[in-house]
């Protein structure tokens, strides 16, 4: 039972991280029908930003949890700026072009950002300090649920709730949904679609930045390729749930996290990816539009 719980919380942690990244993919796709392949790099840049902040503040002698809070805030701001700029440089000029062009631009952006960090930082793995530490009240449960896992799950849950409330109840959230459903009509009603698209990139990048810092604390090391790997997994999660659907991305991420965790725990860690992508293949065969995605219908 304890082993099961350990795997359960392990899966929940993985799922949380995937969800934070997958939301960026799915929201951008929902609005401009682009798979932003450079999204994983934003997550990687978030982790690097966190490391730099942690380095500076540790040298100044701040307590770990305060450093974590500052690192999260700085990473969110920094990555938002990256996401915003990326859209303006790489995607906005291609709006109205055929669908392949922005896709190629996204891949180019991904390669550029990876190599930029490689040159500016290092190609090697860097140790990342565990800013979360071990909570005393968690000591008895540490073998089931580590403190880092707990923080990841809680922060992710808070971010999901905040995002859902924003999308559902605010004026801009409603405008985002309207723009996703029919961009021309949203424009006719006076929605500044450029602003909505920018906001989408900012929100997606913020969530990825949070994910980048948190998972780095958990795994203890980062390098320039972490964005690619996490990005592919999160993209898988988004497709599983139905790309374009926000609850779908959350669900898809959890399903993927649990699948990987249980496959690793009960079968073999060698087969982790086999099960993850096998699941994707099954979903694509039996529910091509994803778990919560809708098959395109049109009413005349």
């Amino acid at each position: 039972m304890e082993y099961f719980l350990e795997l359960f919380f392990g899966g929940l942690t993985r799922g949380s991280i995937y969800a934070l990244i997958a939301l960026g993919y799915t929201m951008v796709y929902g609005i401009i029908e682009l798979i932003n392949f450079a999204h994983g790099e934003i997550y990687m840049i978030g982790a690097f930003t966190g490391l730099i902040v942690a380095g500076v503040l540790t040298a100044m002698g701040f307590p770990a949890l305060a450093i974590l809070a500052v690192a999260l805030v700085v990473a969110v701001v920094y990555c938002s700026a990256y996401g915003y700029t990326m859209e303006k440089i790489a995607y906005k000029p291609l709006r109205g072009a055929n669908r392949l062009s922005p896709l190629i631009s996204a891949i180019g952006m991904s390669i550029f950002l990876q190599n930029y960090v490689l040159l500016a930082q290092t190609p090697n793995f860097l140790p990342f300090p565990n800013l979360i530490g071990e909570f005393e009240f968690m000591e008895d449960y540490a073998h089931i649920l580590g403190s880092a896992n707990l923080v990841i799950i809680l922060v992710t849950a808070a971010a999901m709730v905040a995002l859902t409330l924003f999308i559902k109840y605010t004026r801009m959230g409603r405008a985002m949904r309207a723009t996703a459903q029919n961009r021309k009509m949203a424009m006719l009603l006076g929605v500044n679609v450029d602003a909505v698209i920018s906001l989408t990139f900012i929100i997606g990048s913020s969530l990825a930045a949070i994910g980048g810092v948190l998972i780095a604390c958990h795994t203890g090391q980062i390098n320039i390729t972490i964005g690619f790997i996490a990005g592919i997994k999160a993209f898988t999660a988004a497709v599983l749930g139905g790309v374009g659907s926000i609850p779908g991305a959350m669900l898809g991420a959890l399903v993927l996290g649990f699948t990987e965790s249980f496959a690793t725990g009960y079968i073999s860690s060698d087969y982790e990816d086999v099960f993850a992508f096998g699941l994707l293949v099954l979903i694509l065969i039996f529910r091509p539009s994803g778990l919560l995605g809708k098959a395109p219908t049109q009413k005349v």
């Binding site: 949904r177 459903q181 029919n182 021309k184 009509m185």
Partner: peptide, 11 residues
């Protein structure tokens, strides 16, 4: 009021 009405179906 555009041609085809363009209602937001999910709203």
């Amino acid at each position: 009021v555009p041609e085809g009405r363009l209602i937001f179906p999910e709203l």
